[in-house]
Write a protein that binds this DNA or RNA. Structure first.
Lengths: 265, 265
DNA sequence: CGTCGCTTTGATCATGATCAAGGGATGTGG
DNA sequence: CCACATCCCTTGATCATGATCAAAGCGACG
């Protein structure tokens, strides 16, 4: 049996997928850590495609570990405009960082049928006392999410529509590969063009034209929810995409070695 | 003598300022926690205005607590475009989250003469074992930074230039008030219009015109590095500004009570 | 067969970029 | 004390990226 797992594999019964290229993974969990996390979950809940997990403005003091399925985190402005902040992948937590505030900052809804396990925030914080190394890994991954947002700021602030779309598709490729949901060039992306537009700050018709342009240049196909990136390196060059920000240092190696024996201290 | 301090007051000899309205402060440190953090610092370093603290692409395994002065975190793209990600205030850490990666993701430079104290990342991570509550507070604040980035994404992605500028000025007002560097409507902001443009994804001439428009409407004055917001509520309405995202829950209250009984409750 | 949700296309509009030049300050060397 | 340079702000004119408005395909599904 495997001695390690990432957060994705905590949930699923599937064996953890190997990380392509053995890339460092900031938060690889030890078997016993995964077990602890598993034991903290409340009863899992299935959510139908399009269902809301968290609604902005409501009080919410629990995190939801996305066990299976995809989600989006977004905010609706007063006048109805929507900005999608992020795509949530299996193994990630809904409610970070939105639920760290008096009232949830963002809404979360699912892109697919999904399974989530609630974990009260207080229980997660309790880990700092009881299982500091596990707490370190979780909060390390939370902090690293800021880098994904930062790159999103850069993409929207300083890149053209074409570059943005290319960058977005490449980021998803890389992140989905990390959880075993993409192969070298393909993945399923159940997002409408409206959603992608709301993610990248583009209107629907214009996004459509940009996608056509990428298709015309033979770089990307996007049809029926399936993305195929025909030329990853050309697209990366176009988008100025560097995947470094998706691969934090492994905190497991940075932490001082365990004092007590593995069983926990 | 004060029993509490925020990160700002760790560094400065000044007494901690009261938080306006007694607003919750996610990371108020106990006196002894501040002392621990203080003891972990290496010798402080002064940096002249415009000096670089961290350069993107270089290896960097230490954080820098900004003791005094202001900074900006930014990234230069391959073709020279710059996106400023954030303004760093006293008490914040340079290197979060940029230094959590193989090679620094972002550069940091100062807007004023500044004082920084290096703290090796390994030492900060060591806190998880030795002082879990302090670690919790630090990483809580790191995670909450993601909310600031998220709002930045929203501002750039879905707001007009006018709204963006208004939002930016209000965010800074609120954050500077929290560290005692702004009164009810004024603060000093040593940024050029080029910098503000690079922060908000706007060109210099256009930003200039937007500032003039805000001035013409009697909402804001911005001259010689001094910002005066004449009508905070009108500007907040214009910008759709809600400051909730700047005020995380107080982790001190969320954490389970201390087991031992040092000076805390 | 009709509706609904999504994509696509076309035409027009406008927000904001770019290019170019001038205007103050402030500072520096002669 | 002046000439000059530099940095930043300001203004004007033009351009273009991308928004908006409108309507038409097009499956999928009841």
């Amino acid at each position: 049996m495997n001695r390690e797992g990432n957060l994705r594999s905590i949930a699923s019964t599937a064996a953890p997928r190997p990380r392509p290229g053995g890339a460092p993974d900031g938060i690889t969990l030890l078997q016993e850590e995964a077990e602890i996390l598993r034991s903290m979950r409340d009863a899992e809940r299935t959510v139908r495609r399009g269902g809301e997990i968290i609604r902005q403005g409501q009080k919410c003091s629990t995190l939801f570990l996305l066990e299976d399925g995809l989600g989006i985190r977004y905010k609706i402005l007063a006048d109805g405009r929507r900005q999608i902040l992020n795509v949530l992948l299996p193994g990630e937590f809904a409610g970070v960082p939105g639920s760290f505030f008096e009232t949830a900052l963002y809404s979360i809804k699912t892109l697919t049928d999904a399974v989530v396990s609630p974990i009260p925030l207080s229980r997660v914080l309790g880990l700092f006392e009881t299982h500091p190394r596990l707490a370190a890994k979780l909060f390390w991954s939370f902090a690293c999410e800021a880098a994904i947002y930062a790159e999103h700021v850069i993409a929207i602030g300083r890149r053209s529509a074409l570059e943005r779309v290319a960058h977005f598709l490449l980021e998803l490729l890389s992140r989905l590969q990390a959880v075993g949901l993409a192969d070298a060039r393909c993945y399923k992306l159940p997002m409408t063009q409206e959603m992608i537009g709301d993610m990248l700050g583009l209107s629907i018709p214009y996004l459509n034209r940009v996608l056509q342009q990428l298709r015309a240049e033979g770089l990307v196909a996007f049809d029926g929810g399936k993305v195929v990136i025909h030329d990853v390196s050309a697209l990366s060059a176009l988008a100025d995409f560097e995947q470094g920000y998706l691969r934090p240092l492994s905190i497991g190696e940075l932490l001082p070695p365990c004092r007590a024996a593995p069983g926990s201290q």
